[in-house]
Simulated scan of single mutants.
Amino acid sequence: MTEHLDSQADLDDAIRALVRLDPRLQQVLDVAGTPSLRRREPGFTGLAHIVTGQQLSTASAGAIWGRLQVAFDPFDAEAVRRARADRLGRLGLSAAKIKTLKHIARELAAERLNLDVLANEDADAAHNTLTALPGIGPWTADVYLLFCLGHGDAWPAGDVAIQEAIKVGLGLAARPNAKQMMPIAECWRPLRGAAAHLWWTYYRAFKKREGVLGAEATPTKANAVSNNVVVAKPSSSRGKIAARSSPGPARIRPKSAKTSPRSKS
């Protein structure tokens, strides 16, 4: 049975269940405090919002998303399917993102893809369905499952912030990589998504203690993620954490660049 995190009460119950499953998490919860539920719009709009922000600073991503919403009312799969690529490009989307969004729009129109049913699928199967789409990598897939669908067992194994939090919280000698993160989280099934919320909150708590992160930022939209959360796409770069007021996850910002590094989305 797939667990869902549709309300704060759902997340609270899931965190209590996680502590019963793994008593080590009690000390993590004591430091982090109860995580706040983060949710974004589901369906094509939510996925398109995430894709739009890939490889961009929060400000740039927000500006492009704003232009898309003004230009198309509503900005949905059918609007993207019908839109000329050059028009989407003038609004700020790269050729790769246009290709990704148009492919998804065509798949939805042909009923070969249903983004909403992924909420009830096994987390790993849902992840694989999304990453099979051109331009959708593991980070994008996991963020969609967690924040747009509230999938209770989605596990962003490649997320740098969660990796670092687990290293500190479990007293590991080194930060685990994506492959090593899978067996670590096995005992948290079917609530790995709730564990991700807890580890992000823990990460933020100990980084604030170190003076790396400032005060919580105020969310920019009522339908955005309810609070700032650190979500870092996998990267080999190490750098400072940029705290952001963002309708989506914040990211690790390397010292040598103004925007987050991305490989595949």
Rank of each mutant, 00 (worst) to 15 (best):
D22T: 05
L88I: 04
R81D: 10
A96Q: 12
T45D: 03
H49A: 12
D86C: 04
L18Q: 11
L68G: 08
R84N: 13
D30H: 11
Q55H: 05
P23C: 06
R40D: 06
A77V: 02
T58V: 15
V31Y: 00
F75R: 07
V70Q: 11
Q55R: 12
Q26A: 15
R90W: 03
T34M: 14
P74V: 08
W65H: 11
L29R: 10
D86Y: 11
P35D: 02
S60W: 03
I15D: 12
L37M: 08
D76I: 07
V51K: 01
R84A: 15
T52K: 00
L88N: 05
K97I: 03
Q27S: 15
R82V: 14
A63H: 11
F44G: 02
I64D: 12
V31I: 11
Q26S: 13
R82G: 01
G62F: 00
I15K: 13
P42M: 05
P74M: 07
G92C: 03
L37N: 08
L29F: 09
R90L: 11
Q69S: 09
A96I: 03
G43T: 09
T52V: 14
G66V: 07
A79H: 01
A59E: 14
R81C: 00
V31G: 00
G92D: 05
S36R: 15
P23R: 10
A32R: 00
T34W: 02
D13M: 14
L93K: 04
S36K: 13
A83K: 08
R40F: 00
W65G: 15
H49S: 10
A59R: 14
